[in-house]
Design a protein around this nucleic acid. Structure first.
Length: 490
RNA sequence: CGGGAUGUAGCGUAGCCCGGUAUCGCGCCACAUUUGGGAUGUGGAGGCCGCAGGUUCGAAUCCUGCCAUCCCGACCA
């Protein structure tokens, strides 16, 4: 591991890239645009999965698994859906390789697929094709399914976690008897995401609705949670779509209602991806490395012995054992790092880089005084405390850290949210300060496109429960009844 | 997919203009001394210089083609 990290102020983008690789989260693979998620990074993702999966189940959903490949013809069934994804699909055309006689392996042109297969960029089509066979009656509804899967979107430019050609995600796909019920599901899942972002990731988000331009291909409405990163750019952290009857019509999924009428079902889909890893990294980390919220940290507490000779190490280890078992009894994950190959200072730096929330250090002095050094990652402060009831202290401290990093991110977002009333002011804030900009907009796609064209900023969302206020669009001067949130986005 | 830059040990690099088989740092291995914030010393291993051609007695260096990566645009979770 090399020393030091590019600072955020020097080059935010480089800081991010270095952090991801140096903290052992992920690395570039030899496949262009695809990453290898390393064990430490994957264990964070696993924690996210576990929490989300439980929330999905609590809200009545079951997991299932649908194929990686989608027949091309399925794709063409929903017009706006194809338009949205056509330019970024990987296509399987052949099913066999052969030796060309010169020792080279080539595609066997004779083994051409009759119908090409698309590697799923999302699964609406294959799933709705399947649902057709599952739904006949209102008694079959609602159908509440989630799948954990990989998807492929052939992006031009990729960045570790934020945008990779292949990524991991979950996609929920539900079918309902009524529009109201489907809308309620869309909102419910958005709330699940928001709750997860704020209470587990410690990352404040704005819940809102996307404008027509930013809507998911095939949806009637897209709701989202938007987070603000430390460089003042917005990141969409999760989406929940109300699909109306678009897919039911495209795939002819009908049910007989209580009244005996044949009707198309109403659909939703919702997802979060490994992009959340990027959000988590950029929301809290500092120039020393990762800062992880205790609730998602693979290692919550690390203990480092400081000793001279094997005899002292043995004494320290015996004391540490009491602490680790007390912490484990409280469900806290602890690592005792007694490696003899690295010195304490090295370990301190390493665990800071990896974002371990609490570090305990015990040396000869502590042994005599019944004390231990407690260092917290979020504030980078340390103090020497009595070992009496240390597990209680640590448990409280972890909760405090979780709250503190949320508060810090929240305060940052508040400070970086600016209300503006003129386009000049808008451009000035965008250029000099960044962050969320709250402004009046006339509600048209044309104006939104013009702003994007001229400033690169997009409407991140129309916040839910948005205060209604009379105003005029900052660009066209046309009347507006609410403010929307603009930002430069990832 | 356009515009620019760069490919030399696991990582970061010097050498390239002016051709002679490669420099330095970190990391790695061994031993010793060390251990309350990224240890020190001594010794050691590791390279078809991105790939393929060409020019030349001789190519990391010159020429041609290809590939890859990064940055900037258009596309996007």
């Amino acid at each position: 591991m090399s020393k030091g990290l590019t600072s955020r102020s020097d080059d935010y983008s480089q800081w991010y890239n270095e952090l991801v690789t140096k903290a052992d989260l992920a690395e570039h693979s030899s496949v262009r645009g695809c990453m290898v998620i390393k064990p430490y990074g994957y264990s964070i993702w696993e924690k996210m999965q576990a929490v989300l999966d439980q929330k999905f189940k609590e809200t009545g959903h079951s997991n299932a698994y649908f194929p990686l490949f989608i027949p091309k013809s399925f794709f063409s069934k929903e017009a706006s859906h194809v338009d949205g994804f056509a330019t970024e699909c990987a296509v399987v055309t052949h099913y066999r390789l052969k030796n060309d006689g010169n020792g080279n392996i080539i595609v066997d042109e004779e083994a051409k697929l009759e119908e090409e297969l698309i590697v799923r960029p999302t699964s609406e089509t294959i799933i709705w094709n399947t649902y057709k066979g599952w739904i006949q009656s209102y008694r079959d509804l609602p159908l509440l399914i989630n799948q954990w899967a990989n998807v492929v979107r052939w992006e031009m430019r990729t960045r570790l976690f934020l945008r990779t050609t292949e990524f991991l995600w979950q996609e929920g796909h539900t079918a309902h008897a009524t529009s109201e019920e489907a809308i309620a599901e869309t909102e419910q899942m958005l709330n699940v995401y928001a709750d997860f972002a704020e209470n587990w990731m410690a990352m404040p988000v704005v819940k809102g609705k996307k404008t027509a331009n930013e809507r998911f291909a095939g949806a009637l409405d897209t709701m989202c949670i938007e987070a603000l990163m430390q460089d003042g750019k917005a990141l969409q952290a999760g989406t929940s779509h109300f699909l109306g009857q678009n897919f039911a019509k495209a795939f002819d999924v009908k049910f007989t209602s209580k009244e005996g009428k044949l009707e198309h079902v109403w659909a939703t889909s919702w997802g979060v991806s490994t992009r959340l890893m990027g959000a988590l990294i950029m929301a809290h980390s500092d120039d020393q490395g990762l800062v992880l919220p205790p609730k998602l940290a693979p290692i919550q507490v690390v203990i480092i012995p400081i000793y001279k000779g094997d005899e002292e190490l043995a004494k320290i280890s015996a004391e540490v054992e009491k602490i680790t078992s007390a912490l484990k009894a409280k469900g806290i994950s602890v690592k005792y790092d007694d490696r003899d190959t690295q010195r304490p200072g090295f370990k301190f730096a390493e665990y800071e880089l990896k974002g371990v929330p609490v570090r305990l250090a015990m040396g000869g002095r502590d042994l005599e005084n019944n004390t231990i050094e407690v260092a917290r990652r979020d504030t980078r402060t340390k103090e020497t405390l009595s070992r009496d009831k240390i597990a209680d202290t640590i448990e409280k401290l972890l909760k405090e850290i979780q709250t503190n990093i949320y508060q810090k991110a929240h305060t940052f977002r508040e400070e970086m949210t600016t209300k503006v009333d003129s386009y000049d002011e808008f451009k000035k804030v965008l250029e000099e300060k960044g962050g969320f900009i709250s402004a009046h907009w006339d509600g048209t796609s044309e104006t939104e496109a013009k702003i994007k064209e001229e400033t690169k900023a997009t409407i991140r969302c129309i916040p839910l429960n948005n205060p209604q206020e009379e105003g005029v669009c900052m660009v066209t001067g046309k009347p507006s009844k609410e403010r929307v949130i603009f930002a430069l986005a990832y």
